[in-house]
């Protein structure tokens, strides 16, 4: 009882920070439930990934191996994990609420007949969990029944696991997957090319809204500031809806949730759905020409100004600061 299986997602042979977040959250949950945390990696060839994962202080690493696990597909991964959960007797299965975690974990929960809590932000001492609802306007205390429970964690709500003194033992398991999973086929992945930091991992995020007026202005006005600050670029849903930028830049309730040290909101009015994605940032600065904009109600520092004048000026000021 109380053991937690942590599904560690990998991308291009590496573990993103969000996977290390899952490990630390899994360790916290296991400790509060009196069990141990076991990290799981799934791949057609998981050996080197497993030894990397073993550095982060779990009781054990399970390397699930099967040719059908080469590319991520929900059906095959859910089958492999469900069989492992059953044979291991774990009480919880946990992953970070990335695109993959969100796709996989509910399918796994259904396969196990288990309840699932999505995007939790805290674990109480009594084992109840806290998760936001209604675009973050309510925090729900969740209680789950049954021998197995499934959980995803919000990446920004937990820290990342750090390397431990000694590596965990690795156990290789041949995954159980039936032929039916071949119904789903991976065709292609078109990666958005960018030298910028990843949105959910960046120390600074600069986001633009409908105030930018066009996709071209994102490029010519906002991007110089993003790059001068070494930041990741984000956008409001309004800017995505208007077709200025792709959806994977969307910060908000139905996009990405970020909590950087500094969040700069440019030409964003601050709809509830946007605030849901950034209000846990450490410091928020906002530039908007409408002094009544709701974004100013959460901003630590607000500047009422025309962004088309203020943003190029800010590029120069940041440049000066770096030179001084």
């Amino acid at each position: 009882m109380g053991d937690v299986l942590v599904f560690a997602e990998h991308q291009q042979g590496k573990f993103p920070k969000s996977s290390l977040t899952a490990i630390l959250a899994g360790q916290e949950l296991a400790q509060k439930r009196g069990g141990k945390a076991v990290a799981v990696v799934a791949s057609d060839n998981p050996d080197s990934l497993a030894s990397e994962l073993a550095k982060y202080g779990c009781a054990k690493v399970v390397a699930l191996a099967h040719p059908a696990l080469k590319n991520y597909l929900a059906d095959a991964h859910a089958q492999a994990l469900a069989a492992l959960v059953k044979s291991s007797g774990a009480e919880y299965v946990l992953a970070t609420a990335t695109a993959m975690g969100k796709d996989l974990m509910p399918r796994l929960a259904a396969r196990l007949g288990a309840p699932m809590a999505s995007e939790i932000v805290a674990i109480n001492e009594d084992g109840t969990l806290i998760r936001p609802m209604y675009a973050g306007n309510a925090l729900a205390t969740i209680e789950m029944d049954g021998p197995v429970k499934v959980v995803t964690v919000r990446a920004t709500a937990f820290d990342a696991a750090k390397p431990a003194d000694s590596p965990a033992p690795v156990e290789k398991v041949n995954a159980e997957i039936d032929g039916a999973s071949a119904r789903m086929q991976f065709v292609a992945f078109n990666q958005t090319k960018s030298d910028r930091p990843q949105l959910i991992e960046a120390r600074i995020v600069v986001s633009g809204g409908r105030g930018l007026k066009s996709g071209d202005n994102f490029k010519t006005v906002l991007e110089p500031l993003v790059d001068e600050m070494g930041a990741a670029m984000g956008a409001s849903r309004a800017a995505v809806d208007a077709g200025f930028v792709p959806n994977d830049l969307q910060v908000g309730q139905t996009g990405k949730v970020v909590a950087p040290e500094l969040y700069v909101a440019v030409g964003i009015s601050g709809a509830i759905q946007h605030l849901a994605g950034m209000k846990d940032s450490k410091v928020i600065a906002a530039i908007n020409k409408d002094e009544e904009a709701p974004i100013f109600s959460v901003a630590d520092y607000g500047l009422v100004a025309d962004l088309f004048k203020a943003v190029p000026e800010m590029v120069q000021e940041v440049k000066k600061l770096k030179q001084s």
Partner: peptide, 10 residues
């Protein structure tokens, strides 16, 4: 729409 790009499945 997945993290970091677009994935196609069939």
């Amino acid at each position: 729409e997945v993290d970091g790009g677009l994935e196609t499945i069939g």
